[in-house]
Amino acid sequence: MPIAAFSVNGGPIRTGKIFGDQIIDLGEASPGFPTSIKAFLAAGDDALQRFRAVTIDDATPLPLASVRLHAPVPDPEKFLGIGLNYADHGKEGEKLGLEIPKHQKWFNKQVSCIGGPYDDIEKPAVSDQVDYEVELAVVIGRTCRNVPRDEARSVIGGYMVVNDVSARDWQFRSPTVTLGKSFDTHGPTGPWLTLDEEIDDPHKLTLRTYVNGELRQQGNTGNLIFDIYDQIAHLSQVMTLKPGDILATGTPAGVGVALDPPQFLKPHDVVRLEIDGLGHIENKVVAA
């Protein structure tokens, strides 16, 4: 069962356990339970055992439709993304003058861009090329450094859906793409954190993007150029990864900038991103 960040009627954000279309407050079900998902991950095996033990009978269940879901990890130390990491997306990138990478190409998304699963995406007045990218987000579960590839899965806390929203005009005008990846609201995540133990194989997940009901992207994580374990092994040679750190693992073909003609997001558009087994996020585009 996933773990979520939620609130009721504008009250404080709490952690909850999802049971189908219901959620229970983990603080009520297990007094003293960590009050954030990042703290839950940092608490390690003890918190995980407590989470596993909670049943729907341990607290008053609430209909999911009656609560507001928030970004599962709104304050990671690091939010990193990898570029051109699906073969089909690499090919459409070549049409734009980009090279399919021989090495992993990482960039920062500033953590201030993170939004909730149903929050609005702002189209800034200074950009006319706001684009969508459905991605599998890996959330690190424990502090680690120099992780061997064959041990990489042991440091994963769980998975989310993320939209790596990109202001392409800002992205392409600079050798570093951070500004074009980091506008406020341009990192919606969620709808909750699905724990690693709930997923048989993270490299067998289908991703989709719909814009106003039209299917724009469909891919599978089995087509990553550098898979999740390679990514963790590579990054952890450089930096210490910590609980709650978010790794956006790449997007398949079908982004708006590569369509003919390009189709960028505009106010009133509704963007829905799905990953099988992880749920969906859905965000309306509004003028900033």
Rank of each mutant, 00 (worst) to 15 (best):
V134F: 09
G213W: 05
Q49G: 10
I23Y: 04
A258M: 07
V138E: 03
E282S: 07
N9W: 14
K242F: 10
K181W: 09
A71N: 05
I82P: 02
S166T: 06
L96G: 04
A5P: 04
S127N: 07
T143D: 12
L64R: 13
W106D: 05
D57P: 03
I225F: 05
Q237M: 13
F79M: 02
N9Y: 14
V8W: 15
A233R: 11
F33H: 01
V111F: 09
V165R: 00
V285P: 00
P101A: 10
V67E: 05
V139P: 00
D169A: 00
D169L: 01
K123H: 10
I156H: 02
V177L: 14
A152E: 05
S236E: 05
R173I: 14
K78G: 10
T221P: 01
E197V: 12
V138D: 03
Q129N: 08
L80I: 13
N146T: 14
R153E: 14
L98P: 06
L193C: 07
P74D: 07
K78F: 10
G158I: 01
V111A: 07
D120G: 12
A125Y: 14
L96P: 04
A167E: 01
G254K: 04
I13G: 01
W106I: 09
G279A: 11
A288T: 10
F40K: 04
D128G: 09
I275M: 01
L26F: 07
L278Q: 07
A4Y: 10
P12E: 13
D276K: 11
G11R: 08
M239E: 13
V271C: 03
K109G: 08
D46M: 12
D201F: 11
G157N: 02
D184W: 11
T60H: 15
G157P: 01
R50F: 02
P117E: 04
S174L: 12
V8F: 15
D75N: 14
E99Y: 08
V67Q: 02
F6N: 06
A4M: 13
L278A: 11
A53P: 08
T206N: 13
S112T: 12
K181M: 08
Q22T: 15
L215C: 09
E77S: 14
R168L: 02
V139L: 07
V162R: 06
T178L: 10
R216M: 09
